[in-house]
Amino acid sequence: MSSTVLVTGGAGFIGAHLVPQLLDRGDRVRILDNMSRGDRGRIAAWVATGRVELVEQDIRYGGAVHQAMTGCDRVVHLAAVSINKSEADPYESIDINVVGSNNVFKAAADHGVRRVVFASSASVYGDPETLPMAEDGPLHPLTPYCIAKHTGEQLLDYYSRRSELSWFALRFFNVYGPGQKPTAYYTSVINHFVQRLRAGEPPVIDGEGAQSMDFVHVHDVARAIVMALDADAARADVPVNIGTGIDTSVAELARTLIAAVGVDVEPQFRPRDVLVSRRAADISRALDVLGWKPTIDLRTGMQDLVDSEIA
């Protein structure tokens, strides 16, 4: 059944992959975005279909959020200030990521929205004590961004207990793919390696390259969001990891990208003390609750990224 979905931050990286999936299944989409980083050309093409509306506003303004929420059945909340900017300006981070999120959730509850899907983050775990990282494991958010994501989950729980609203907080791991900004905090290493490889230079790795991440393709992330919009309300009101369950070391990433770019170089290792951290998601809840599992493996995804015009 088609519906009207409000997507905050829908002009951004994940929105660029989510909105087409929503349109393909017959939904109407209202994008609430301040367009500080959005692609106006892409938005204009969507609006021209007659099924997408842009509300150029900021989630910090409660009245604007309430107005944008009118007539929407479901909500995807993507809008946020990134993790690196949150440490540079904690005030703005709390203002947007906590106050803004509260505006979205409160408006959703007031308007009788039945489902909110919130873009949370694996950063709520901090440095994991064990792998894989499970939703019920210990949380140690370390920055204003991470703290705000955890707070957002708690706010959703608060409003769901006082309304008909149900929710999923999708804890995204290291999201990558075509269209990502070069400055993306957790995956900037990809862009750095690709730039060097395209210049015929080897990637330079600190230490032995044992530090790892769980890279999940943005197409699969968008799929997870769509599936969370439809999932059974009886299974809702929980956080859900969205990753691959595979911890890919920086050294392995470098070799995968060397093959994708097609250059004959070897990674260079820069001896230095490095805090080796590892990340890998326990994705059993995603399969159980959403019916979701990743479909794009690292090699295919990195080739897709390298081949894209925006990579």
Rank of each mutant, 00 (worst) to 15 (best):
Y145C: 08
V55A: 13
N97Y: 05
M213A: 11
A311C: 13
E309A: 15
A122P: 00
A48D: 08
S121T: 14
A122M: 14
V29E: 09
R278M: 07
G15W: 04
V250H: 14
R114T: 01
S3C: 13
M213P: 00
F193Q: 10
L23I: 11
L139V: 12
E135P: 02
V75E: 01
S284C: 03
D288P: 00
M35V: 06
E153S: 07
A259G: 15
R25L: 11
L290R: 07
A251H: 08
V104S: 01
S284W: 07
D237H: 09
K293Y: 06
I205K: 08
L155A: 00
G62P: 11
D110E: 15
L253Y: 09
V113K: 00
S82Y: 12
M1K: 15
F13M: 02
A259V: 08
A109M: 08
A107M: 10
A254H: 09
L22E: 01
H217V: 03
R171P: 11
R115A: 01
L6C: 02
V240F: 04
G152T: 03
V104L: 01
T70N: 06
F193W: 10
G62V: 04
R162C: 00
V5D: 03
M35R: 11
T4H: 05
I190A: 05
D95G: 00
T244Q: 09
I190S: 11
S166A: 13
Q180G: 10
I258A: 09
T187G: 01
I225L: 15
N34F: 11
R196A: 15
H66F: 08
V99T: 05
R278V: 05
V238D: 00
T130C: 08
G38F: 06
D304P: 00
D110I: 14
A122F: 14
P203T: 07
G209D: 10
T300D: 13
A184N: 06
R74W: 02
D39E: 12
L155Y: 03
Q21M: 13
E129G: 15
F215W: 09
R60W: 05
P144D: 01
R198V: 00
D297G: 11
D33Y: 09
F13Q: 02
V75I: 00
A80M: 06
A259D: 15
G177N: 08
I94Q: 03
E129S: 14
Y159H: 12
Q195N: 11
D110A: 15
V104N: 12
V221E: 13
E53G: 01
R299I: 11
I147S: 00
L298C: 02
M1E: 14
M35K: 05
I59F: 11
I147V: 12
V5G: 03
V55D: 07
V221H: 10
S2F: 13
D33A: 13
L54C: 10
I205Y: 08
R299Q: 15
D24G: 15
E92N: 14
P294F: 05
V289E: 06
A16Q: 12
V47I: 12
I283P: 04
